[in-house]
Structures are given as structure tokens and as C-alpha cells.
Design a protein around this nucleic acid. Structure first.
Lengths: 257, 257
DNA sequence: AGAGACATGTGGCACTTTCCACATTTTCAG
DNA sequence: CTGAAAATGTGGAAAGTGCCACATGTCTCT
């Protein structure tokens, strides 16, 4: 066994660091070393590993989260994607009118949109199942956030399950914004168990479903089908679409930005 | 006019720092100085002012956003309290049996309890209205978390409102653990608007209400009454209680740890 | 039990940051 | 225009941090 045999100590420290980071946004290496009763070099090495995995960011003298409430996409490409996501989120944000009530699901693109709305001081009411979206929008004075109930999916910092779906059904909004984990000519599909049901629930309670997807999501298919293309669906993307997907969208009466 | 006439430069820097912090979670003072074309001392002073206003937190070499749900306890005693809270949380955690389902409200002591349960790998199901508690317990494999719906109170990183209360009423648990913001002979009172209702709701749905309070909460009274002392109430505290509160507890049939 | 891989501690040096006192510049009221 | 207050810059000592090489410790597999 090369890897599965975990040294408890180390993994435990890593977990704790990540955990504390959710609450404190900056941990000092010297403090961590004191708390854990280890040398600063050890913590420094921990941080270096976590950083290599894209899970935290180093700061002089300490550690901080990659970005306030941002998912670690792990691989280095996430940086390029960051720009694309930002652009998509910018376009999606333009669809939001002051005073609107919207639904927003979980995912990095949704968080990016939340960030735009928050920075823009947009007065909106947001229904979401994402803790990160909630926290991001919470920093805006103008936004009010209503959080869905449900079972916590820690990896995604979001809630899912029947409670979430049932809750969403009690509302109706003009637009729902969701991220997609995969888009093919068959429609929108989702990889995270439970998310498809939430996305479908949001779709069912809005006049227009805005799907945000960057290039990396296009042409792929995941396990759970969210929806096929149809009227009332708007796809926001930054990339040119392959012929067959483009046609599938047109045939279904969907809109593309 | 002594104050209203702001030097643009300064206010502008402050704004930009706050703005950037929403995206980056850590800004280095030396970088900011270079970007703004000012001396590091100037930025240092900016940061000091922002920190005094509770708008950011200093880090060695930089600035980070203040974590949501973190009261501006500001004064140095909060660190000592940390130890007391940990001790209280440890005692409260001892009440939790493997497999239990509990309710847990929002607040620093509740977070501390969550941390204990998480680190202990305790297999529990937790119902909570606190995002931080959810996130902390989310890092534990053994715990499962059910989050309440409701309106987000960003400062506390928690949800409140009728939706939260209504949701809680659908469950029943053996023990509910809540923090108290003030305890006097009149009972438990709460300062944060909306929290009292949530605490009451939790109280109504459990066999035993466990109230956690450190010394600083004792002898104070806040605006909203949560409950008077009665049977089925257990107070966990690290400090000796004043005579009159002690008697009020005994008279009501409450237990003290 | 022993070799070896991995984790952690130690010490030193270069570099960065902090803090403070004081000089200098900018701004504003009268 | 001028003086005072506020804002900013400067310089240097003390402290904190990063990084490197190497020593020590710890666990695993054979």
C-alpha cells in the first residue's frame, strides 16, 4: 500500500485546517503550530501540500481559503476556467433586475454569479440550496437570502434531498439560475447525486430557466438527466457550440446567450 | 466640519480594499502599497482603521475579511472565553450518545460543540439553523446534518424566521443544545432578533433542553425571553452560579452541570 | 529485527513585516 | 494666503517568517 495507509496525524491536521478556514479566513502558521504542538515547519509543509492540491492559498505567515467560498477545482486549469466562469456570471447577472426574486443552485458558476450580484449591490431576493452562495450574498446589504432546508452535502457545501425539493415547490420566481455539470444534445445532465432533483425542482418553479455552463461542460453527458432543451430555457455560455448541440437547442426552442 | 469632508484618496483605498477582499480573501499589505502607489505605512494605517470598525481582520503581512458569524468581541478577553467555551462544549458533548439525533442552534458555543462532535467522529444526526455548525459537522464522516430553511442573518451565519420555526416543529429529538446570550434569575434571554423564536421552537421539540453558557452570560438579561427555568432544562456552565440564579434553577426543577 | 520510506524537528540565514518616532506633504478653514 | 490638522512618507531596530539542508524519529513491509 503506497497511499491508503494514512498517517492519522497529518490527515487530521489537514482536516482541521480546512475546517477552521471555513470560519476564520486566515490562520497563522505560528498559531497552528502552537495549537497542534508541532513545529512551524510541519505546518508549513501541510500548507504546501494543501496548496498543491488547490485546497488553500498561502499568505505571508498564514493560510487563507482559495477564495471566499470557492470550490477547489483541484487541477491547475481551474484558473483559466475562472475567467470564463466570471464572464458567464457577468452575462447572467445582467438578466437580473433590481428587486427580482431568483433561485440559484450550488456550484462554482452559481457562486460566481452570487459574487457579481453581491459586488453590484443588486437588491435581490435569492432562494438557494448552497451555503456558499448564501454566505457570499450575505455580505451584501442589498440582497436578502432564503436558504433551503435539506440534508447537507459537505463536499458541495449545499443541501439536497426531498426536503429541499419540497421547500422549493412552495415558491415561484421569474428566473432560476443553475449551473450544469454536463451539456450534450440530449440536454442538461448532472453528476452530483441529488442535485438533479434540486435543479429540476427549481426549473419547475420558474418562468425561465437560465443554465450557465462553460466550455468544459459542453459535449459531456453525466448520469442524471435534469432536462432536455425546451422553451423557457436559456443557455449562457462563453464558447461556440458544436453544430449538433446548437441544433438541438434550436429545435427545442431554447435561447442561447 | 471636522470629519465629513473626506480625503478622497483614503476613502477610496478603503473601498477598494473591501472590494478586493470579496474576491481574494487575503491581500498583502506590501502589494496594496505597490498597487496604490503609497507607502506600506499608509496601508497599514488604513487596515488599522478598517479593523477598528470591524470591517476587516488583520493578518500578518496582510488583510482578510472578517468571518461571518463572528461577533466583534474585539476585546482580548474573548480568547480566554475560548477556553471556557471549549470546556462547556466538552461537557455538553458527553451528553451525546452515538446515534443520537440532536438540535443545535447558532452561536460560538454551539460551534464549539459541533467541533467536538466532529473531531470525536461521533455518529450523530444534527438539526441546525447555523451555517457554521453545518460546515463544521460536514467535515465529519460520521455526522449527518440537516439544515433548517429560513431567512439568512449574515452577521450570525444562521437562518431565522417563521420558516425555520415551522420546519423545526416537524421533528422531535431527545436533546436540543442551545447557547444563551444571557441568563438571569428570570430565565434565559436572547439578544439577536429572531433567535429567541428558534430556540423556543427547539425547546418545544425536545425532551431535554441543554443550555450552554459561559460566565460572561450569567447575570445578564437581554430583550427576548426564551424560557424560564423548568424541568427538562439542563444548564451547562463552567462557573459557579450566584445564589439567586442557583435557587431559581432549583425551584424550577432544572439541572446544572 | 532491519532497511527504507515517510514524517517531523532543528538551526541558520536571508528576507519581510511591524512598530515607532519624526519629517514632510496635503488639505481646508478663515 | 497662512496656520493648523490630517494624511502620508522615511528610516531603523526588533521581531516574525520562509526556506534550505540535515538530523532525528516513526511506521511499514519483508
Amino acid at each position: 500500500m503506497t497511499e491508503p495507509t494514512q498517517r492519522l496525524r497529518k490527515a487530521e491536521r489537514h482536516e482541521r485546517i480546512l475546517m477552521e478556514l471555513r470560519l476564520r479566513s486566515h490562520l497563522r502558521i505560528s498559531d497552528l503550530a502552537r495549537d497542534f504542538g508541532v513545529a512551524t515547519e510541519t505546518i508549513r509543509r501541510d500548507v504546501a501540500e494543501l496548496e498543491a492540491g488547490g485546497r488553500v492559498a498561502k499568505a505571508f505567515g498564514g493560510v487563507t481559503p482559495v477564495a471566499p467560498g470557492q470550490r477547489p477545482d483541484v487541477d491547475s486549469r481551474s484558473r483559466d476556467r475562472q475567467k470564463e466562469r466570471a464572464e458567464i456570471a457577468r452575462q447572467a447577472a445582467a438578466l437580473v433586475q433590481p428587486g427580482d426574486t431568483i433561485m440559484l443552485d450550488a456550484g462554482s458558476t452559481a457562486q460566481e454569479l452570487a459574487r457579481y450580484l453581491s459586488l453590484g449591490g443588486q437588491p435581490v431576493t435569492v432562494l438557494t440550496n448552497s451555503l456558499n452562495v448564501a454566505i457570499i450574498l450575505g455580505s451584501s446589504e442589498a440582497a436578502s437570502v432564503r436558504l433551503c432546508p435539506g440534508d447537507l452535502l459537505a463536499r458541495e457545501a449545499a443541501v439536497t434531498g426531498s426536503e429541499t425539493v419540497e421547500f422549493l415547490r412552495r415558491f415561484h420566481v421569474g428566473r432560476a439560475f443553475i449551473g450544469a455539470s454536463a451539456i450534450s444534445r440530449n440536454g442538461i445532465t448532472e453528476a452530483v447525486p441529488g442535485f438533479a432533483a434540486v435543479k429540476r425542482a427549481m426549473m419547475g418553479q420558474c418562468a425561465e430557466l437560465v443554465v450557465m455552463a462553460d466550455q468544459s461542460k459542453i459535449g459531456r453527458t453525466d448520469t442524471d438527466l435534469v432536462t432536455r432543451f425546451g422553451p423557457g430555457l436559456t443557455l449562457v455560455t462563453e464558447a461556440a457550440l458544436p453544430q449538433e448541440i446548437r441544433r438541438a437547442l434550436d429545435d427545442g426552442g431554447a435561447r442561447v446567450l
